[in-house]
């Protein structure tokens, strides 16, 4: 367990270092020619990029594992059940409808939107919903959030808002700045800390909400803590990097067999594996593919979706109650 954490942390740091050292020959030549430009690339562009990949990937893995544990459902995750869509909607409304520019405003809008989507989801799944109910509620919330986002963009003063946002929503960590790090990291880390503090409670939830309550867990407080923590982390992440799917869904499944299936014990390794996976995906998008710029959300979906389909086929008897 600790060895698992150590090796995952080492992997994440290795990939983050690779992100900093991308194209080393080119960087060295540039350093000789123009050290100032090389330094700006390292400090102003690559450092925030690597830090955001670690933090956002980590928060996606963590909140995915926490949502699966909380809802006792292996198909739960921020991008499937609506919080990511809600965060995008919140950020779009703040920035394009009210015209409040700036990373901080978008982050706050994202957190508010994620909170609203999660609140709606819990309301719809009150009293222990089945997998089908939960997923249908999530699909409905995601569809509603997506439609409202498009509506807000259509009503925005700038006719090109939709085009502007489309690229952001596909997910990217390119050309972010240290300001993004400074704005996004505090709510993101606070959210992660809140979620992590529910670790023992999530373990108890493995046997159901009533058994957890009989074991002394305040289930309502635990749920609130994880919902607020997830909203903080996902909202801040989406506002900075757009929608990055499948990490929250897939990573807990990779980790679970190595922690004996315990939902609470899966949290930390899921965070570390999520950080490593997003760093790796962010390296893939920088590979030159016919000169075109790949989008991060596209890459994580291309890796994650087939893997997830394989998981469903393999675990069908587990998922179907």
């Amino acid at each position: 367990m600790t060895r698992l954490n150590l090796s995952l942390a080492a992997l994440a740091l290795l990939l983050a270092t690779a992100s900093l050292c991308w194209n080393p020959v080119g960087m060295l030549t540039l350093w000789q020619r123009s050290p100032e430009a090389a330094r700006a690339i390292l400090i102003e562009l690559r450092l925030p990029r690597a830090l955001l990949a670690l933090a956002i990937g980590g928060s996606l893995g963590l909140t995915g594992a926490a949502m699966q544990g909380l809802l006792r459902n292996p198909l739960a995750s921020p991008d499937v059940l609506g919080p990511s869509t809600g965060a995008a909607l919140g950020a779009v409304i703040v920035a394009y409808t009210f015209g409040i520019a700036g990373t901080l405003a978008m982050a706050l809008g994202g957190i508010g939107g994620a909170l609203a989507a999660l609140g709606l989801l819990l309301l719809l799944s009150r009293g222990g919903a089945s997998t089908a109910t939960l997923l249908l509620a999530g699909v409905a919330i995601s569809a509603l959030g997506g439609a409202l986002t498009n509506l807000a963009l259509s009503l925005a003063p700038s006719p090109y808002a939709l085009y502007d946002v489309l690229f952001w929503l596909l997910g990217s960590l390119a050309d972010r700045s240290l300001l993004h790090v400074v704005v996004a990291l505090p709510p993101l880390l606070l959210g992660c800390a809140l979620v992590l503090s529910g670790r023992r409670g999530l373990d108890a939830l493995a046997l159901g909400e009533d058994v957890a309550a009989s074991l002394g867990v305040d289930v309502a407080a635990l749920r609130l803590r994880i919902v607020i923590g997830t909203a903080l982390a996902v909202g801040a992440g989406v506002a900075v990097a757009g929608s990055i799917g499948f990490i929250g869904l897939v990573v807990p499944h990779l980790v679970r067999p190595r922690v004996g299936g315990r939902p609470g014990a899966a949290l930390v390794p899921s965070a570390l594996a999520g950080a490593a996976l997003l760093c790796a995906a962010d390296l893939v998008v920088r590979l030159p593919v016919a000169g075109h710029d790949l989008k991060l959300g596209v890459v994580t979906a291309l890796i994650g979706a087939p893997f997830f389909l394989w998981l469903i086929v393999r675990q069908r008897e587990v998922i179907e109650p």
């Binding site: 006792r72 459902n73 292996p74 493995a206 046997l207 159901g208 679970r256 067999p257 004996g260 299936g261 315990r262 939902p263 587990v318 109650p321």
Partner: peptide, 11 residues
């Protein structure tokens, strides 16, 4: 019913 593939000892 149990949801997760946990070891008996961990349960």
């Amino acid at each position: 019913g149990t949801v997760w593939p946990m070891r008996g000892r961990d349960i």
